[in-house]
Design a protein around this nucleic acid. Structure first.
Lengths: 190, 190
DNA sequence: TGCATTTCTTGATATATGTCAAGAGCAAAG
DNA sequence: CTTTGCTCTTGACATATATCAAGAAATGCA
């Protein structure tokens, strides 16, 4: 079973084996080398990928500065949703931080799933609502927590990441400078 | 045509009149007085409402402090999505800031729409993706903008709100204290 | 109309976080 | 190995924002 099947199965345990096969048969495995881009800003994003292994960074250039919006790990989907669904210009860059294996489906095939798997709309909805909730939590963390608290909270839940990616990216996605990040980090060690 | 029909029609102009009628027939109009709660934390949220007129504040109590997560105006949906979809305990309080008219549908009826309106799944998806994108932008604003910039940006797009609700709530949803909000406001007037 | 309550503003001050600049530590590439 | 870039850390300092406390203004209510 691929990570993809495993993911769908465990999160949305409402899919029978046939449907699972149908869905996953549309996803093609391919590989990104470290540094490769899955997507660049202003292009159209016509595919949706699922991370089998590796790490992707979602970021954007904002007057001279790079803002990291998110780092996606194994088990996450990666796409520019508004571009994928609405055909809008992509808002994000997506780049591999390490060699990364992806299961990818193009938009055309994606549309076919709806017809072949009646439950797909439901799965899709649950998936979107889950994503929505995660974003709500993230906003809440910015309304209610200090940089230090955000660091702490993220560290608790994503320890592994801290020795896999440049820390400046984590700093950025938590909304602080690398220097602040470094100082908070030092404090935690004492 | 109700605000609801107008909304569905203009945003997702893919619905024919019959479907529009079917959908909106499930929504019942009712009224909240100022101060009334549509939802309280930890309850189950088994309905989804659409604001015909008025204002709702989505907030939560966070050690002694209230954090306003969002203020919903005419044309917005209001619900606790994760509670509505996953039957989880509600994460948010939703309270009317002024007398508010709502079109509300309960979960049972909501499920019926899927069967009656084949395009519903698609509408729902587009709606969720739109919401998702708005939240992405909000997160981005916290990663890339100062309090003053967030104020400015929000003011540009929501002028009307500023003389309709206590400013402290807007301050909170923008992630700053009422004092900071007040000082920024003063600066803008000069 | 006037009292009570809530909301907003302001000043003084504290704290958190950002900026800039330099150097240290590491890791990839010759 | 050495060199060359990155990345991370650190210090000094600047700035943004929070906190606390008081009073002013606005609002709702009797």
């Amino acid at each position: 079973m691929t990570e993809l099947e495993h993911y769908i199965n465990s999160y949305f345990g409402i899919v029978n084996t046939d449907d699972l096969n149908t869905i996953s048969s549309f996803f093609k495995l391919h590989k990104l080398e470290k540094g490769d881009f899955l997507l660049k800003t202003n292009n159209r994003c016509d595919k949706l990928s699922f991370i089998q292994s590796g790490l992707l960074r979602i970021f954007v250039n904002n007057d001279e500065k790079e803002i990291t919006q998110w780092i996606s790990t194994k088990g996450y989907f990666a796409t520019d949703l508004s571009s994928f669904i609405f055909n809008a210009p992509a808002r994000w860059n997506i780049q591999a931080l390490v060699e990364t294996e992806l299961y990818t489906i193009n938009k055309e095939d994606y549309k076919k799933i709806e017809d072949l798997v009646p439950k797909w709309a439901e799965i899709e909805k649950l998936f979107l609502v889950r994503c929505f909730t995660i974003l709500e939590d993230r906003i809440f963390s910015h309304l209610s927590m200090t940089a230090e608290e955000r660091y702490h909270f993220f560290f608790q839940n994503n320890r592994e990441l801290f020795n896999q990616v440049p820390l400046q990216y984590i700093a950025s996605m938590l909304g602080m400078t690398p220097e602040t990040f470094s100082r908070i980090r030092k404090k935690q060690l004492l």
